[in-house]
């Protein structure tokens, strides 16, 4: 048996997973970086993106590409709005106390999850990909849609990077992250920046959810794994550091892909979870860089 095709397949799967993970984890990292809080409901925003894509696919007739394009814009907007509301109604009132925020976002995550169960139902539902085209490799055919996921993820991350570095909004975010009190003194509306950041982070998760759904399925519990994986990526990459998060997403996505192909997926998850716990204990600033510690 030749090992090369397996290796290629595992690498491709790993890259697809890494790009989805990169989007989800960057959302989590952004929220932590600027607001210093951990959002446990992040996985539910991802799930809502996926369910939104399914909803668009059922409501909008015609070619799947049309409903997919609509979902890619509408679902994140609605999720972002929801997140901003949650920030205003709950997080702002507990003053972003780190521990209370975790407990509250666990509550938010249960509410979103169970409301989805009550409306969307307990079944997993599939969505047609916007286009079918198989790229032929010598050993196997590979869906071009998966390459599309990688492309969109890279483009979005590049956009985020440019926004953070060169836009007014990015400047406000970085100022708030750097020193909240001073930013407030200079007239930056820190409260509104927080809401925007929380919404923006949730939107990134929702985009990832929309992207992933033609490849897997929408299900009300699907947010659990991406949440844990994003935790892992964000912690290994150094909390709040964008380049660290990107590097860690690629590393962990790839290694998870490889380990899952050659060993059991549960074992892969055990290994990476344990790695994270130990990184947090012994090297809380993350494996790359020197971003803030929790």
């Amino acid at each position: 048996m030749d090992i090369a095709p397996y290796l290629l397949l595992a690498t491709l799967e790993g890259l697809v997973q890494a790009s989805v993970l990169m989007l989800t984890a960057l959302g989590l990292s952004l929220v932590f970086g600027v607001m210093r809080v951990v959002n446990v409901a992040h996985g539910e925003f991802y799930m809502l993106g996926a369910v939104g894509a399914w909803l668009c696919a059922t409501l909008i007739p015609g070619h799947p590409a049309i409903s997919f394009a609509v979902a890619l814009i509408v679902a994140p907007l609605i999720v972002g709005l929801l997140a901003a509301l949650a920030d205003r109604a709950i997080l702002q009132r507990i003053n972003y106390n780190p521990e209370a925020t975790i407990v509250s976002t666990i509550g938010i995550s249960y509410i979103i999850q169970q409301l989805t169960l009550m409306t969307f139902g307990p079944d997993a539902r599939a969505v047609d990909p916007p286009f079918y085209y198989n790229i032929r490799f010598p050993w196997f055919g590979y869906s071009s849609y998966k390459f599309f996921i990688i492309g969109v993820a890279v483009a979005l991350v590049a956009t985020l990077w440019l926004l953070m570095k060169h836009s007014k909004m990015g400047l406000l975010m970085r100022a708030t992250q750097y020193d909240r009190e001073t930013a407030l003194n200079f007239g930056i509306p820190v409260g509104r920046v927080y809401s925007a950041v929380f919404a923006f982070g949730a939107m990134m998760a929702a985009v990832a959810g929309v992207l992933v759904v033609p490849n897997s399925q929408a299900h009300y519990l699907m947010g659990h794994d991406p949440l844990l994986m994003s935790f892992i990526v964000v912690i290994v990459g150094g909390l709040g550091s964008i380049p660290g998060t990107i590097a860690a997403a690629v590393l962990i996505g790839l290694s998870d892909g490889l380990l899952s192909v050659f060993f059991s997926p549960t074992l892969a998850k055990i290994a990476s979870t344990l790695l994270v716990a130990l990184v947090l204990v012994f090297k809380p600033q993350g494996l790359f860089g020197k971003a803030g510690r929790i």
Binding site: S104, Q114, L115
Partner: peptide
């Protein structure tokens, strides 16, 4: 009554945190 009983857990977590810590 409902399979979605965890929603109450979620609401309580938030309510306690906000008003009855």
């Amino acid at each position: 009554m409902t399979s979605a009983y965890l929603i109450v857990v979620g609401v309580l977590l938030i309510v306690i945190n906000l008003w009855f810590p």
